[in-house]
Nucleic acid binder design. Structure first.
Lengths: 116, 116
DNA sequence: TCACAATATCGCAATGTTGTGATATACTGA
DNA sequence: TCAGTATATCACAACATTGCGATATTGTGA
């Protein structure tokens, strides 16, 4: 009943954060992030595709979504395209998931907006 | 190229976690969670509705989604229904968002599956 | 019992997401 | 230049989500 609005997170902030969270809300995209995080180096699309066990075109689409959100960055070298994590926001989330694989799970991330 | 699959988070786990993250990927639902977290006590639907500035029917639907995922719990008392946080998984996420309102933002959560 | 307030559900149109297969583009080496 | 490999885009059907207004349900107090 009493007004808590000064304590609440700005609706504007929530609206900015929600799409980033949405990007993480898909098993395949989480897998891509996890793979790139564990690899700790740029990876080419065919490797990412293989580790996902999904159709290349679908993986490519998901890579684009992640890139458009600024989570990934890519660089072409010859016929290959290397993807790497550009925004480490969601890594905390992955770490939490990993640490709780049996029983309770965790999700944690730090969403950077703008520069690193 | 080399096989990192033993280090990767199980696809099964990612598939279980993704829907919970998805539930958080909406500004209104984040607002509801934030409001209940800050209030730190059960709140009735009309209060939640007011703090959301959305149509009652829509808020009610979102409350159901959160309840169905086990994030919220509710209890009717007379003509009112009190909602409260049942699963503190996503609170870490809210805390991270709050701490980074200006500049970089953060998302963090611990997803409990099953009992508290 | 009835009017009323609080909440929930329904029905629906608009929009977005998922996943596939076909096709296009970019680059390399022969 | 051409065939071939790697990646991206397109078109599309199936399905899910968003958000609203109308209607239903639940419980209270008169």
């Amino acid at each position: 009943m009493n007004d808590l609005s000064p304590k609440l997170i700005d609706m504007e902030v929530l609206e900015r954060v929600a799409p980033v969270i949405r990007v993480a809300a898909h098993p395949l995209r989480l897998r891509i992030l996890d793979y790139l995080a564990v690899s700790n180096e740029p990876k080419i699309v065919s490797d990412i595709t293989e580790c996902c066990g999904a159709a290349p075109s679908f993986v490519s689409q998901q890579l684009r979504i992640l890139k458009d959100q600024g989570i990934l960055r890519c660089q072409r070298r010859g016929t290959n395209v290397y993807y790497t994590i550009a925004d480490r926001s969601l890594l905390h989330l992955l770490a939490c998931i990993r640490h709780s694989q049996g029983g309770e799970q965790a999700v944690g991330a730090t969403i950077h907006r703008g520069e690193e």
